[in-house]
Design a protein around this nucleic acid. Structure first.
Lengths: 171, 171
DNA sequence: CCAAGATAGGGCAGGTTGCCCAATTATTTA
DNA sequence: TAAATAATTGGGCAACCTGCCCTATCTTGG
């Protein structure tokens, strides 16, 4: 329902287009085409497909929470009564500072990414989470440093490399 | 060194522009301007500033790892000999499947986001992490569901709302 | 061998960008 | 409060780009 099944593997051309766009986000289709030695039509078709197939995440992803006034990032491991998951998620969605959440395996049930403008707000959010019916514990880990900022370039290189050599991936 | 200090708080106009762009990522500056009742010049100036000030993260962020052939996401809590952090991070960066990593407080030292095309690859990556000198343990939590996909819209609403109600916030 | 799909190449009207400038508001600051 | 500074607006212009349409190759798989 979210992402189309049609999300088959991207081929080398798609990857080259994406790579070019990463380097020059504002590049026009024409620019990409000439740079890659493709026709404008091809590039436009590909990009359109990438957007509809779910290969491109929403623009929202590019907005920096820090710039919005939320410089602190923390990860909260939430332990819950699993049978109440549905309702708990519904409540979590209502907390704006929770900008991401995954249902995970392991001792905790949910891993949430929480941003805040300061420690107090973090504390407040923690309180709101604990107040939800079915939540039993919430362990917060504050991010002290973004050692590796979210990237996908490494994945694209991997794919391109794998294609060219056709061998086992290594590094 | 990463993000410019110039990243002062965004004002209501910036937020409105960003909100509009979220709704219509392909909207031209002219379109945004007319929709918000601003001049084209203003919108273009603002957007340019947002891009240079670090309020807009790199395009890379919009690429879906799943589309690249990495449908599995997991979170790995890494315990290390803290004095070896530097070198460990240097090694982690070389592992393409690690698309994000934070230095965190709590029992674990590093929280890494790892993607893979299958369980075996996850296992391989885990091995590579454990092989790094100074790494003592790596606990993997597989993401079974993206309960809340990364979002920032909630933050923008919060900010805009805060502005409208209480007039004190400098945002 | 044919059908389907992808790519190249060309065309055209209309919208858009980049850049520049002057006039008009805010907003600060002295 | 007045002067200085920054933000916004409105307009103009050439170059460029997009969206859409059509056709001719060229692969690829059945």
């Amino acid at each position: 329902m979210l992402i189309l099944r049609i999300m088959q593997q991207l081929d080398a051309t798609d990857l080259r287009i994406l790579t070019t766009l990463c380097a020059q986000p504002k590049a026009s289709a024409v620019a990409v085409a000439t740079e890659l030695g493709l026709s404008r039509n091809t590039v436009q078709t590909r990009i359109a497909r990438l957007e509809t197939s779910g290969a491109l995440l929403p623009f929202e992803q590019r907005i920096n929470p820090a710039a919005l006034g939320f410089p602190l990032t923390s990860f909260v491991h939430i332990h819950i009564q699993q049978r109440l998951l549905q309702g708990i998620v519904a409540q979590l969605v209502k907390i704006p500072e929770i900008i991401e959440a995954h249902g995970i395996t392991g001792s905790a049930d949910i891993l949430a990414r929480v941003v805040a403008n300061g420690a107090e707000e973090l504390f407040r959010v923690n309180g709101r989470i604990l107040a939800i019916d079915g939540v039993e514990r919430a362990d917060t880990s504050l991010s002290m440093a973004a050692l590796i900022p979210l990237r996908t370039g490494s994945l694209m290189n991997q794919r391109l490399f794998a294609r060219e050599t056709s061998g086992t991936q290594t590094l």
